[in-house]
């Protein structure tokens, strides 16, 4: 929950690194701590076991500096990944403004990743947060390991919400900053949308409003496809690929190193070979990037009730009316005794 403090001229946001055990959450934080400018970072505090496994959380404050006259700070937390520590995981998640889900790319860890993502959704819900509304970024870590699954397959298996994804080798510091930068931009865009007046600037109204919407994660069923809406996700992917066909591809190594943002929409059809098309060009504006890269939103998921509309409604009501008439008729016959008479005649 963002705290805006006009007395201290501060904006404080809470970002949580989530993921299964040994996926690299603490490593991410260590890299941020090591590489962030010294005047911007605070102390890295770890509440860990003797074996260096996170027991409660790791924490470090990161100062973004003055933004719009407010000192903007991110409080970065990790959760303990081990299944046993779910209670503490839930506590750390309380009041989170954004989540980085660190997935272990190894095939042998796929089930653990899926369990952890489900656990994230559940714990967010128990903290009154919706995974579809909170800014969320997935990092596919450990891309250098031989057992690493292809990104397309990971997208299909894990990116149920169509959120931005990044490849990383956190232990070498690759992909760590792009991941955090994207999530930070999403969190600030959401804050700006809810509290700022920037979106009302006439010259940039459209792009900023779109960026805020897409980046904010306030997308619910309209911007992020629901897990079960695979056809919509497929269309999204195709559309993105078609858009990308006209652009030039950066070298593969650049993507690998996380130097280029590898954000992509959700994909759902791994069996279909991906078209050989280059990804869209890198965009410099993090607050507007999401809006541009996100493909047109799928139609919102509707409940059976809301789906009954137009001509469907008319048929529905007609059937009801017919049934009501039959019931009234039977009751009338029963009351008047004519039904017995009619049955006796039969």
């Amino acid at each position: 929950m963002v705290q805006i403090n006009f007395a201290r001229k501060e904006v404080n946001c809470k970002i949580v690194y989530y993921g299964c055990g040994l996926s690299g959450k603490t490593t991410n934080l260590e890299v941020v701590h090591e590489k962030a400018p010294s005047d911007r970072k605070g102390e890295l505090t770890s509440i860990a076991t003797e074996g260096d496994r996170t027991l409660f959380f790791d924490f470090m404050p990161l100062d973004l500096g003055k933004v719009g006259g407010m000192s903007t700070k991110f409080q970065l937390y990790t959760v303990p990944g081990q299944v046993y520590y779910n209670a503490t995981r839930k506590l750390v998640l309380q009041g989170a403004d954004g989540v980085v889900f660190v997935a272990d790319s190894q095939r042998s860890k796929l089930e653990e990743n899926i369990e952890s993502l489900k656990n994230l959704e559940e714990n967010l819900r128990e903290n009154g947060l919706d995974i579809r509304k909170i800014p969320l970024v997935i990092q596919y870590n450990k891309r250098d390991l031989p057992d690493a699954m292809p990104v397309e397959e990971l997208d299909e298996k894990l990116n149920w919400y169509g959120c931005p994804t990044f490849e990383a080798v956190a232990i070498r510091g690759e992909g760590v900053f792009p991941t955090l930068k994207k999530l930070s931009a999403m969190v600030l865009a959401k804050l700006n949308k809810e509290y700022g007046v920037g979106s009302r600037k006439p010259a940039r109204t459209e792009s900023r409003a779109q960026a805020a919407k897409a980046s904010s994660g306030e997308i619910s069923t309209s911007d992020r496809p629901a897990p079960t809406r695979k056809p919509a996700a497929k269309l999204q992917r195709q559309s993105a690929l078609e858009t990308a066909t006209a652009t030039a591809a950066p070298p593969a190594t650049e993507r690998r190193k996380g130097a280029a943002q590898t954000e992509r929409p959700a994909r759902s059809e791994p069996a279909r070979p991906p078209r050989r098309s280059p990804p869209p060009p890198r965009e410099r504006d993090p607050l507007r990037t999401a809006a541009r890269r996100r493909t047109p939103p799928p139609p919102p998921a509707r409940s059976p009730e809301t789906r009954r509309s137009g001509s469907g409604n008319a048929v529905f009501y007609a059937i009801y009316a017919l049934l009501a008439l039959v019931v009234i008729g039977v009751v009338y016959l029963l009351v008047s005794g004519k039904l017995n008479e009619w049955i006796a005649n039969l």
């Binding site: 973004l64 865009a189 700006n192």
Partner: peptide, 22 residues
């Protein structure tokens, strides 16, 4: 006089570039 500045979004972009690199 106590609200988020109009240019918060623009400044956030450059602040993020400063810390994380462009």
């Amino acid at each position: 006089g106590e609200s988020i500045a109009a240019d918060f979004g623009d400044q956030a972009e450059s602040a993020l570039d400063d810390v994380f690199g462009a």
